[in-house]
């Protein structure tokens, strides 16, 4: 690139950046003094609404990316192992060197069993489940995200299943992976996802009599009064003025 071209490009840069910025679906919630619940950082934040890659096409293995080396094999083996239940996998997502299977929730338990028991797959280790709340994703607001690790094949996959806020039920896989016991209790505690078939789905982190599920997006960050023996101390954001 000659110096002249570089200069031209540099001259266009602010305009180009401005165009890009206007084109991005940015949601700004104000600069200082953001009004989102309980936020005391003073800055309202910035969200760019963009959709993640929905459905990756085959082949999943990218010859230039060693991280994806066994993705096609895993997908084939899973398809073969599921047999006629292969429709359980709604879509497959390959992004950032990670393989994600989006699964219908009805089929989750069977899928977990196949993942653990099928000799070609052998995902011995489940590293737990966590919830993610997407209030804008109507009909699939709550996601349960599982990560599985195969020590035999040195492979790692993610399984995602969704459920709506109105019917927050997902089958429990504790019967297959006992390690998920506490992880599912935590996801229930924080997000209100009901894991059907869990042996004792009770709160784990919050006190037993807590109201609400605090890590959902519609739950404020702060502003919970302290209660002790009937006496109440008002929540921090109502105690004194910051202005």
């Amino acid at each position: 690139m000659s110096e002249k071209e570089r200069n031209e490009e540099a001259a266009e840069l602010p305009e180009k950046q401005g165009r890009e910025r206007l084109a991005a679906p940015v949601k700004r919630t104000g600069m200082f003094g953001g009004s989102t619940g309980g936020d005391t950082s003073g800055f309202g934040g910035l969200q760019v609404r963009g959709s993640a890659p929905a459905n990756s096409p085959r082949p999943y293995t990218d010859p230039d990316d060693p991280r994806t080396a066994d993705f096609d094999r895993v997908a084939d083996d899973l398809e073969a192992a599921l047999g006629e239940d292969a429709g359980a996998v709604e879509r497959v997502e390959v992004a950032l060197g990670e393989l994600t299977f989006h699964v219908r929730r009805e089929a989750l338990l069977e899928l977990a069993r196949v993942l653990r028991d099928d000799p070609a797959l052998r995902y011995e280790l489940c590293t737990g489940v966590t919830g993610v709340h997407f209030p804008d994703d109507t009909g699939r607001e709550l996601r349960a995200v599982y990560h599985f690790r195969s020590i035999s094949h040195n492979s790692e996959i993610r399984v995602v299943t969704t459920c709506p806020d109105a019917d927050p039920h997902v089958p429990s896989i504790v019967s297959v992976y006992p390690t998920n016991d506490w992880h599912e209790r935590e996801a229930w505690d924080f997000f209100g996802i009901v894991f059907d078939g869990h042996p004792a789905l009770t709160r784990i982190q919050m006190p037993d009599d807590w109201r609400g599920h605090p890590q959902r997006k519609d739950y404020p960050l702060g502003g919970i009064p302290v209660e002790y023996r009937g006496a109440t101390v008002p929540p921090p954001d109502e105690r004194r003025s910051y202005t």
Binding site: G38, T40, P214, P220, L221, G222, G223, V226, Y228, P236
Partner: peptide, 17 residues
């Protein structure tokens, strides 16, 4: 004072108790 954890889980200073 609750420190950096100004949130739902932490008592904002043990002097409330």
């Amino acid at each position: 004072s609750g420190g950096m954890f100004n949130n739902y889980a932490i008592v904002q200073g043990v002097d409330h108790i």
